[in-house]
Design a protein around this nucleic acid. Structure first.
Lengths: 197, 197
DNA sequence: AGTCGATCCAACCAAGCAGTTGGCTAGAGG
DNA sequence: CCTCTAGCCAACTGCTTGGTTGGATCGACT
């Protein structure tokens, strides 16, 4: 295989990620992706088929990265939630991709749903283990809610700015919010851990 | 003013709301909006200027509705959060509009930011009163997080379906999730109510 | 009935868009 | 050195789209 083909693909994927994160599926412009990548537009169709399939490639690549980085390494669930928060603060594009996709597909099944299901199942399993309980629907609800809290600030930056104050991006502000999340998580976990305590 | 002008406007706004909620700003088609409304396309430009301004009209109308419906009527904060949840389950388009806007404007200031700021400030004030505390930044953080939890299921329907099980839309499933939210909220509020308790 | 002003709309326009094509280039195999 | 294949790209295509326009319609007032 001639030299640059892998490199060209990678450049396209990077450019596409930036473009899709910024403008979404409908708003993304194929020409702009090619331009950003410094590659001819036609390569996109040769490698990926069409715009939507390119989006899927970008997304699945990004999801792999996400699941790899955010792990249940520590055995503190609150720390896990804070990790998710950190990750989305550092790489908001990945969350944006997920949100564009969510809005685009709505309630219709998303491509590749199976693989994601197993990935989430694993996370749930780990989460339950950390808590020392079974992975019941209640625990799933809890995990889902906590992911929501962790991601909410990056999901709604304008609302965050308005409610939490103008400077949400300073390191100090993020540290404070992180603290809040840890405390919040500890608090909300208590009920599940000692049911009817 | 001749008879139908107000009615025509209203029909356009309704159609635009549906179209924008479904497809976002970039994905919405002006022709489709006119078609849905049964009105000529040119009226949109006469009444609202252009596509983006039309979106703003739709959004501000929807926000008014939202703030009117979701009130702090009861003096139970958990009930308030559950109300938000109910509202977004019943009218997911409104959340979708907010999300499209959030993605579209990103970190740039949104049009009409001032009015929204005061609206949120009022909600925060009410929330703090319900808790019987001052509206400190901590309370703002809590309110913001709780809004996130309440909205998360409608924000990420695919993730919800995968983690919470296939049927998230049945009345039973929604009632269960509502229960979870109430419990979750009570739990997480405790810390703020009795600080360092 | 006649004029006037505003509302409405079919047809139009130019730009922007996703996707294609036909030919050029360079490296591998003979 | 020649051929063949796969990667590459400038230029093109035809459709879609946001936005416009010129004239038809209609109610109000005289």
């Amino acid at each position: 295989m001639p030299p640059d083909t892998a490199r060209t693909r990678a450049k396209l994927l990077d450019a596409a990620r930036a473009e899709f994160a910024e403008h979404g599926i409908a708003g993304a412009r194929v020409d702009r992706i090619a331009l950003r990548a410094g590659v001819n537009k036609e390569r996109i169709y040769a490698y990926f088929g069409n715009k939507e399939q390119l989006f899927q490639h970008v997304l699945s690549e990004s999801l792999q990265e996400l699941t790899a980085v955010v792990t249940m390494s520590s055995d503190d669930p609150a720390e896990y939630v804070a990790q998710i928060y950190d990750f989305y603060c550092a790489r908001p594009e990945l969350l944006r991709l997920l949100l564009w996709e969510a809005l685009y597909y709505g309630h219709e099944p998303i491509p590749d749903e199976d693989r994601r299901a197993t990935s989430y199942a694993v996370k749930l399993q780990e989460f339950a283990e950390q808590l020392g309980v079974q992975p019941t629907p209640d625990v799933a609800q809890l995990l889902f809610s906590l992911i929501g809290v962790a991601a909410w600030q990056s999901t709604m930056p304008q609302m965050a700015r308005i409610i939490l104050g103008t400077e949400t991006e300073s390191e100090q502000a993020q540290a404070r919010r992180r603290e809040h999340l840890v405390e919040f998580t500890r608090q909300s976990i208590a009920a599940v851990k000692q049911p009817q305590g």
